[in-house]
Amino acid sequence: MMKHRLNLRVNKQDFEVFVKPKTTLVDLLRDELGLTGTNKGCGTGECGACTVLMNGNAVNSCLVLAVEADGAEITTIEGLASEGRLDPLQQAFVDEGAIQCGFCTPGMILVAKDFLEKNPQLREEDYKTAISGNLCRCTGYVKIVKAIKKVAEGE
């Protein structure tokens, strides 16, 4: 199978990679770039675990073909903390007990990040809408909502 060359910027680092036409962004990140923080929960865009930011928008990376990410700027969970400091959302998830098995956590944090950056005036009902496409089986979402609220309200 012919491979395509593409260039993309992931977590502020430039990459040139060669991928099969059917390779998805999640597989590229995990298998080629070793960024296994992006978790694959379903592969069909139903659980949100593989959410990353692509050109500043939260996307299910299992629904994006790698070739579509040519020239894109991608942020994965590994790119969120800077200089050893956690992103406020990461810190709030830790402090509020919003993490259990942790498999949904990277996707939850990145979706919340996207929404908070675009909608700083969100109400609680809006955070819920923001993460309603991301499934979590451990927490019942209570502490996840609390963590997001904490950051949104700048506590």
């Binding site: 960024l35 296994t36 923080g37 992006t38 994965t76 969970i77 590994e78 969120l80 903390a81 956690l86 990461q90 810190q91 998830f93 830790v94 007990g97 993490i99 259990q100 942790g102 956590t105 990277p106 944090i109």
Partner: peptide, 10 residues
């Protein structure tokens, strides 16, 4: 949780 930071950072 002691493992929370590892999980929050992927």
């Amino acid at each position: 949780k002691l493992d929370a930071v590892e999980k929050a950072t992927g």
